[in-house]
Design a protein around this nucleic acid. Structure first.
Lengths: 207, 207
DNA sequence: TTGAATGGAGAGGACCACTATCCAGTAGCG
DNA sequence: CGCTACTGGATAGTGGTCCTCTCCATTCAA
């Protein structure tokens, strides 16, 4: 496989593939001559992964790099956590977060009793949400997350049970894409459900 | 209120506020002299809305503009639909979408029986997800969305019932922020739930 | 009165994700 | 063998976004 094949199969311009090579998102092919190299299926798979991360997940190439690094270090949890980067970051600076972080920690560790790392990005993300909603003028309590937590817990158990254990190769990679897909799907379906159930009162308050 | 007050209360640089004014995201204040104008609470509210949309929702200023336009035309459904723009778009071009769109339509209209507009962006988004997952090498069926649809339906009814009908001012605006918040929260909680429930098997397949 | 701030406008900059151009070195075809 | 097309590699340039900087005549607050 040469660059042009890679390009054709992945639906990307050759220049773009070269760019990814330069950026270290894609490993160099095995050189066969001074100006020749061949690429394999793993390169194509990588390209598809990159596009899934950028197109479906909206990740920047820098974030894609983080995910890929984690995958290559056989750190699936790190890879999944890296997906949260697209939501956090921005809101972090400036605003006074008040006790939002503490409230969220209490909610997760206490009320829900979930065992998650103290550095799980979801914590900060939830706190950001709290801060943002309060900043927009509503005085909400952490407890507002309860139904979402219940739905999330149910969905994940459902997922884990229904799963073909498929310990095939590239597990972690597929898990990452699946997580992204699940994220997008759950949002899409919530919006559709709201349009379906809330017709005629779309101007009503939610959450 | 002058620009500097606006800037301070919103936590933005004065130059940024001026930029938003130039871009038409913020209405001009009421002029009191050749080089003087005053701004009101609605300007501050608008600024907070803009930052919620960009920071929490990750919308571009162009997309923010779309949302704001819809809000000003008293079109809450349009405003909510505009939120989906951050997911769609990218994946649309190039790839052969196959029958994904049809499958999704059948799923929504037939299996779920949901009444949503034919042009609801959630449809296309779901199809994109399908295309992306398949492109990354898994042969999935639309039915995979079923649990997500169930969770979404439950969450939205929960929302609509629990809601204080609060027909106060700026309903639609708050609904938009609430939707964004709900999106982020449901993702954060799903990721946390997975970390909690799936510990030791974080490398297992999901969705 | 004097220093700081204002509205308005334009230029400039930083970053991102490419895209274009150039080049010497192959590859494959007839 | 010659010819064209393509290759890897490198550098420079593009278009877009989101600000940030600078300038200006005017106005306000001390």
């Amino acid at each position: 496989m040469r660059v042009s094949d890679l390009s054709r199969h992945a639906g990307l311009a050759v220049a773009t593939v070269k760019y990814y090579l330069r950026e270290g998102l894609l490993d160099p092919g095995t050189a066969t001559a001074a100006t020749q190299a061949t690429y394999g299926d793993e390169h194509l798979r990588r390209l598809r992964l990159i596009r899934a991360l950028t197109d479906l997940g909206g990740l920047s190439l820098r974030q894609v790099h983080t995910v890929i690094d984690a995958l290559e270090e056989a750190d699936p949890l790190g890879a999944l956590r890296a997906l949260d980067a697209r939501f956090v970051a921005a809101a972090a600076a400036g605003t006074d977060r008040g006790s939002a972080d503490d409230e969220v920690d209490t909610f997760i560790d206490g009320e829900l009793g979930w065992k998650v790392g103290a550095d799980a990005p979801g914590r900060r993300l939830l706190a950001d949400v709290l801060v943002a909603v309060r900043g927009s003028g509503r005085d909400v309590d952490v407890a507002i997350f309860r139904p979402y937590a219940r739905a999330a817990g149910w969905l994940v158990t459902e997922d884990l049970e229904a799963k073909d254990v498929s310990s095939g190769p590239h597990r972690a990679e597929r898990t990452v894409v699946a997580t992204l897909a699940a994220d997008a799907a759950s949002i899409a379906l919530r919006h559709l459900a709201r349009e379906h159930l809330g017709s005629g009162r779309a101007d009503r308050d939610t959450m």
